[in-house]
Computed example of a mutant assay.
Amino acid sequence: MQIFSTFEHSVFIEMAISTLEKKGVKRENIFVIPLDNQTEERKVFDNLHRSDGTSFVDIGVALATAFSVIGASIGFELAWGPIYWGLIGAAIGFLIGFGIRLFTEIILKKRRRLLKGFHSEIIVIVNCEESEAEMIENILFSHYALGVAKVKVQK
């Protein structure tokens, strides 16, 4: 039987491995693999096949509404009239809102990602007998494994 588990980069991995070795699991039956970090920069704009759930138009639409009302109100006094100035206000409001959202996504969130320092996870694979599976699963969960899966190996 093989037991797969994932851990965050922490000292709990070493503690789990040493506990497993103390309980009789041989070192040759424990396999630890660190996942690679993403090297390319994340894309800001979504495409048809991938979306991160972040909208760029939400602030733009709200500001377009506010600026169009203000533009239409002021437009009664100006030469082109309220309809043109309402449309001009909507376009200006949308562009300002889109610019604000673009700035927060590109500059501020990139800075936050760098400060947070995302580290990849680590996969731990343990080969064991079916009778030891419950004990190993409990040890891994007690040392803060993110997830554990058991797979029966056909011989």
Rank of each mutant, 00 (worst) to 15 (best):
I17M: 07
I17K: 05
T19M: 04
T19W: 02
L20N: 02
L20E: 03
L20T: 10
L20F: 03
K22F: 01
K22E: 05
K23G: 01
G24T: 10
K26W: 01
K26N: 13
K26M: 06
R27D: 00
R27L: 00
E28D: 11
E28Q: 11
N29T: 09
N29G: 08
I30A: 00
I30N: 00
F31A: 12
F31S: 13
V32N: 08
I33E: 14
I33Q: 13
P34I: 01
L35F: 15
L35Q: 04
T39W: 04
E41F: 10
E41V: 09
E41P: 05
R42S: 10
R42C: 01
K43V: 02
V44T: 14
F45H: 05
D46T: 03
D46C: 00
N47A: 03
L48D: 00
L48V: 02
L48M: 04
H49L: 06
R50H: 15
R50P: 03
R50E: 07
S51N: 14
S51P: 02
D52K: 05
D52E: 07
G53F: 01
G53L: 07
T54R: 09
T54A: 03
S55G: 04
S55E: 14
S55Y: 10
S55Q: 11
S55T: 11
V57I: 06
V57A: 11
V57P: 00
D58F: 12
I59S: 08
I59W: 11
V61A: 12
V61S: 10
A62L: 15
A62H: 09
A64I: 13
T65C: 09
A66Y: 09
F67M: 15
F67Q: 03
F67K: 02
S68W: 03
S68Q: 03
S68H: 03
V69P: 01
I70V: 14
G71Y: 07
G71S: 12
A72R: 12
S73H: 13
I74N: 03
I74Y: 14
G75L: 02
G75P: 05
F76V: 11
L78P: 00
A79R: 09
A79T: 11
A79P: 07
W80A: 15
G81E: 06
G81C: 06
G81R: 12
I83G: 07
W85F: 14
W85Y: 15
G86V: 03
L87P: 04
I88Y: 10
G89A: 12
G89T: 06
G89L: 14
A90T: 08
A90E: 11
A91S: 15
A91E: 04
I92M: 09
I92V: 15
G93W: 03
F94S: 14
I96S: 14
I96K: 05
G97I: 04
G99A: 10
G99C: 06
R101K: 15
R101N: 15
L102A: 11
F103P: 01
K110P: 01
K110Q: 12
K110N: 14
